[in-house]
């Protein structure tokens, strides 16, 4: 298991319990999308997995290590890309020269290739980059570390539309069977076609399912009138897009936005269905 948690909890203080009794098992080879409303603790969970925050209770193992010990063997096997990027005032080349040696599997050619695909001008000083370019630079570095687990908090924030597509492609192409990725986002559509596992987080807990499991229980279809077993519906021109119980006649892939809204607005029935 790349990530294993048992009854994980986190509170900033007695009155502010953010996460409670989270149980996660994420094997290698998965690309998981962490979806949740604002303030449900997505970033907090990612920071705990990366070891920059300590859990208040529960057990946690990430790439066979306890993250809070912050051992080098752990840190070189994960890469955490926070929402708020930080790049020191230096050039891209010197950044790589300084930090790549800490990662034994760092692939310089891959780094250059990813930068080229994301259209980042490499020789510039990092402080001269725009927000989006900084994100792209860090995505390239993260992928090139070949770390076992990539934890990315809102990686598509600030990326232009072509870059979002490149990002999706890059993840699919470069994630090996021994690796895993956890991506959080507010924009579920950014992850469509990339993730194979969904982690749905709200104030009451976390639900982790593969898309295959969800496809076996749920269906997405377009209807003139919403069926009775609709978990969540969205109106478009003269029709309804609905997420319902599984139907053999519906072959459409799960729509992540509909899925999340079904979980968010109709939690009890949603959980019964899955």
């Amino acid at each position: 298991m790349l990530v294993k948690t048992e009854d994980l909890g986190f509170a900033y203080n007695r009155r502010n319990q953010v996460l409670d009794q989270l149980n996660i098992e994420l094997p290698a080879g998965r690309i998981a999308g962490l979806l949740g409303a604002n303030g449900t603790g997505k970033s907090t969970l990612m920071q705990i997995l990366a070891g920059v925050l300590f859990p208040s209770r529960g057990n946690l193992e990430v790439v066979d290590h306890s993250p809070s010990a912050r051992r080098p063997e752990f840190l070189r096997n994960i890469y955490f890309l926070p929402e708020e990027t930080y790049l020191p005032n230096t050039t891209g080349d010197s950044y790589v020269r300084m930090f790549a040696p800490f990662y034994p599997n760092f692939d310089r050619q891959l780094f250059v290739d990813v930068l080229a695909r994301l259209e980042v001008r490499h020789p510039l000083r990092l402080s001269d980059y725009s927000f989006g370019q900084k994100k792209k630079f860090q995505i390239a570095f993260a992928i090139a570390t070949r770390a076992q687990l990539l934890i990315m908090d809102e990686p598509t924030n600030g990326l232009d539309i072509p870059s979002k597509e490149q990002f999706r492609q890059l993840l699919l192409e470069t994630t090996g069977d021994e690796q895993g990725v956890i991506i959080s986002t507010h924009q579920a559509r950014d992850l469509e076609g990339v993730i194979d596992t969904v982690m749905l987080l709200d104030s009451q807990g976390l639900v982790v399912r593969t898309l295959n499991e969800l496809n076996d229980c749920l269906s997405v279809g377009t209807y003139a009138e919403p069926p009775e077993d609709t978990l969540y519906k969205r109106q478009s021109v003269n029709q309804w897009q609905c997420i319902t119980q599984h139907r053999d006649d519906c072959e459409a892939d799960i729509d992540l936005e509909l899925l999340f809204n079904a979980f968010h607005t109709n939690r009890t029935n949603f959980l019964k269905q899955i």
């Binding site: 920071q47 990366a50 070891g51 920059v52 912050r70 051992r71 080098p72 840190l75 070189r76 890469y79 955490f80 926070p82 708020e84 990027t85 930080y86 020191p88 930090f99 800490f102 990662y103």
Partner: peptide, 18 residues
């Protein structure tokens, strides 16, 4: 001094003692 640089520094693969 800053949260972003703190996270960056904590994630550098070296031990706390180092």
């Amino acid at each position: 001094k800053q949260k972003s640089s703190l996270v960056h520094s904590l994630m550098v693969p070296a031990s706390i003692t180092e």
